[in-house]
Design a protein around this nucleic acid. Structure first.
Lengths: 130, 130
DNA sequence: CTTGCTGCAAAATCTTTGCACCATA
DNA sequence: TATGGTGCAAAGATTTTGCAGCAAG
């Protein structure tokens, strides 16, 4: 079963990694980071915990090249990201104009229960330099 | 190797399906549609051809629940979609204000080579009704 | 003819799951 | 102590690839 709330060593370790490096990371990257910190957590547990945290709205998920990427966001409000393709670092963005545009367009076309995804992908200053 | 341009029966059949049903479809759905039309095309060929068409900019790709979804777009210009979660039908959208916002935000944060993804997902009138 | 595409089956990912055991509350 | 989480290994699902044969230019 997918974890839901219990405070375990594994969940704490995963949140520790996500909090330390507020970037979009894959399950494998998180798992590797846990190993480096000498935190033994099975990959399956990483997946289960990420799914649980994601369902609780505690973290944001975006699709990467092939894997999904997860990031612990500062804001719990609806927002978007400017993500570095190279290191995964992310900057949280808001765009109220987009929100109203989206609902207007949805209405115009008779769509219901519309939400949206918006992410910007590029290369951050640090990665451009190095 | 991934196909690039040669005019084969298989490529024509895949484009036929995509042109007939301008929705976001998965590789499996396309493969199933080909079977219904009595067009024998291997699933691997569907994948190879979709990848090739996608690279040529001939079709748009978005990530679905687990599979990727492909749609033959009318417009070859940069645009976004309002997609029905249920049937995959898509409406092409433009939003110039978003484009300028995106490049301004990218500049502000020193990001380079920034592009973006924006899709709206909801339920179309027809699917809401039935 | 030559090169590239296709089919098939096997492999490679990424992610999920069954089950026995362990840890939290 | 009861419930829920974890680890492990196996299964699933999607996508890719090697290779021999076929077809398009």
């Amino acid at each position: 079963m997918t974890p839901s709330s219990r405070a375990t060593r594994q969940r704490a370790a995963i949140l520790e990694v996500l909090a330390a490096d507020r970037s979009f990371l894959s399950a494998r990257q998180i798992h590797a980071s846990l190993e480096r910190r000498a935190r033994d957590v099975a990959l399956a547990t990483v997946y289960r915990t990420l799914k649980s945290l994601s369902r609780q709205g505690a973290l944001d998920t975006i699709p990467g090249e092939s894997e999904s990427l997860y990031c612990l966001c500062r804001s719990s409000e609806h927002h978007h990201h400017l993500v570095c393709r190279s290191c995964g670092i992310s900057i949280e963005l808001e765009n109220p104009a987009l929100e109203s545009w989206a609902s207007r367009v949805a209405d115009e076309h008779g769509f219901e229960a519309v939400d949206h995804t918006l992410e910007l992908y590029g290369t951050c200053r640090r990665c451009s330099a190095g």
